[in-house]
Nucleic acid binder design. Structure first.
Lengths: 144, 144
DNA sequence: CTCTTTTCCTACTTTGTCAATATGATTTTA
DNA sequence: TAAAATCATATTGACAAAGTAGGAAAAGAG
């Protein structure tokens, strides 16, 4: 039940941009160096966010990316759904998810729905603005 | 962020045993036919549950498996941790999880901890007994 | 005592996804 | 016009998921 590096990097990427954009665009190269993430991989990730309208790009020297929305309007759920494809733990718990071939009684459907809801509740109420300002407590300083 | 078939099958397996064990053991063959799951795959799954002390086995004709615990004492979280390895969305959110190589500031650690907690809350408060008695509403009859 | 039914054990296969890496084209500013 | 950046696509290597396969061992039925 892991969130992939792609999704985690996407969050760190946006947090980094939010934290480091004065008004000039933030380049992938800079993010890559600050966050220790492959720049080529970040390029792939940000292209998803670009075409989804989360960021906008500026080409050429001194170019980079700027947030197209306010940090408080970008939720972790939005970003993870874009990069992970879905955050639902099972297909049938998704909105418009598939139905089963044996449509009889399903004992686990309710569990998956509740699990999906609990996950969405956390991710949809956390924004990039929340994450930018959060610093871990001393002794809790981990990072992935 | 999917729960694999292994984990989902493990739950259905236990629910099926709980629902169909009068006092005689329930055979994998019967579960396989009722649940439409490969019997060979179910064998692998139940061997995990057997060595973990969730079920006990009876060999030979009329053999099969019996729950070793009461259905209300077996949580979904227990079963999924056994079969999935972990239910944490990221390594650093686990109990005794790894620390990061750059132990500086991590903006996302708090999010992962809260997500992990929300997931655990749902899975650790749902038991096999709960699932056995649950029937979906009409119109909600899906199954994976 | 032997046949059948079951669990038990281990290895293999196939398919797909993850996590990048690689290569180069395009745009824009200095 | 050279450099710095984004943009686009293809390829790779490692790993796990989801079974399949084949048989060994135990135990009850006849």
């Amino acid at each position: 039940m892991r969130i992939s590096t792609k999704g985690r990097y996407a969050l760190r990427l946006l947090i980094d941009i939010a934290a480091n954009s004065s008004d000039k665009p933030v380049s992938i190269k800079d993010v890559s160096e600050r966050e220790h993430i492959s720049d080529k991989y970040l390029e792939q990730i940000i292209s998803i966010l670009n075409s989804a309208g989360i960021v906008r790009s500026v080409r050429g020297p001194q170019g980079g990316y700027l947030l197209r929305k306010k940090p408080e309007d970008i939720t972790a759920g939005m970003i993870l759904r874009l990069t992970e494809g879905t955050i639902s733990p099972v297909p049938c718990a998704e909105e418009d998810g598939p139905t089963c071939d044996h449509m009889s009684v399903c004992s686990t459907y309710g569990l998956w729905k509740r699990l999906n809801q609990a996950i969405s509740d956390v991710l949809d109420t956390t924004t990039i603005a929340d994450l930018v300002t959060q610093k871990p407590e001393a002794g809790d300083e981990y990072c992935i």
